[in-house]
Design a protein around this nucleic acid. Structure first.
Lengths: 170, 170
DNA sequence: CATTAATCTACAGTATACTCCTTAATTTGG
DNA sequence: CCAAATTAAGGAGTATACTGTAGATTAATG
């Protein structure tokens, strides 16, 4: 009987009781911290140009796909429509993008990148790559591969959870 | 000569040129997405109790360590002091914590968890564990281990970058 | 063809997470 | 012991990322 208890203690059943006890054992907590690390690194790298990671992501998709409305852009970079509209508004204010009503669909606002926007992307791109390299520099090649695969799997599997979280009103 | 070019093409030197071309190949982008996934899952799970992940993290550390000032709490959960003060203010407003001046150091505000706060932690804890389980559910056990190790390594190595990012004023 | 449904944007509001600047209290060095 | 540096907090301001609601336009359906 004592043996069965000992057996349970070695099977991980008991470990699960305190699986997420420490903050550093909670994947969600570590993801938030790493997200902040990335923002910090990106901001340090682009301090002169004063471009955020999300602003750069939007300018990136505008570089390849021209003729995009605000909602499509928000979906492509994985942010909420209102957040996207906010960011785009700032990009337009800074002359990095333009916005005009679509002729096909007068509800939609077509966003286009300007020459200044393209120059900014060209300047920021190597800095962004340095940021990625620095962030993952503690990892071995194998850890990097597993880490990226794991990220993609989790984001894809829980994609519907990242939008419309249905918060209760206070 | 042609062989040397072919050789280069197989060594990954060329691959690096477009290493971060796609958004889904950028670790920083995926980390942001997964962070949003976690927030979404947490908010769905705690919709009734209306507690955010950061609020829960702060209540968690208050459960174990009593007698903490705002700055120590912010450092423990890894957020900026002003963000921490904001969150704590809301917790106090909702009766989940109390705040009073320290007698030893009259600059510091000592934060304590209330009975209602402890009840909330007790109620939310299993929900939080479900959220963690659901988020990492697409991973194999081995992938989970590597993923968590990779997260810890990156957060520790770049810890100083997560605060004081020195943004240029607009 | 008219009514309904779906779509795109805008606006107001909240939470997190920072910035910089200031004030107050404590510690430290000469 | 007193001036200087440090530390804790607060206030104002910004960016991201949501909520919900509303208005305008387009698409779909009886």
């Amino acid at each position: 009987m004592e043996n069965s208890i000992l057996h349970l203690a070695t099977t991980g059943e008991q470990m699960n009781q305190e699986k997420y006890e420490d903050l550093w054992d909670r994947p969600g907590y570590l993801v938030r911290r790493l997200h902040q690390v990335h923002i910090g690194l990106f901001t340090q790298a682009c301090g002169e140009l004063d471009l955020t990671a999300v602003q750069f992501a939007i300018l990136s998709v505008l570089c390849t796909d021209a003729e995009l409305d605000q909602l499509s852009i928000s979906k492509l970079v994985g942010i909420d429509r209102t957040s996207g509209a906010d960011v785009i508004k700032r990009l337009v204010n800074r002359g990095l993008a333009t916005r005009e009503r679509s002729k096909q669909d007068r509800r939609a606002l077509i966003v286009r990148i300007t020459d200044a926007g393209r120059r900014t992307v060209r300047d920021v791109r190597p800095l962004m790559e340095d940021v990625q390299d620095k962030m993952v520099s503690p990892l071995t090649d194998e850890e990097y591969e597993v880490f990226m695969r794991a990220l993609r799997k989790m984001v894809e599997a829980n994609n519907e959870a990242s939008r419309a979280p249905m918060r209760k009103r206070v």
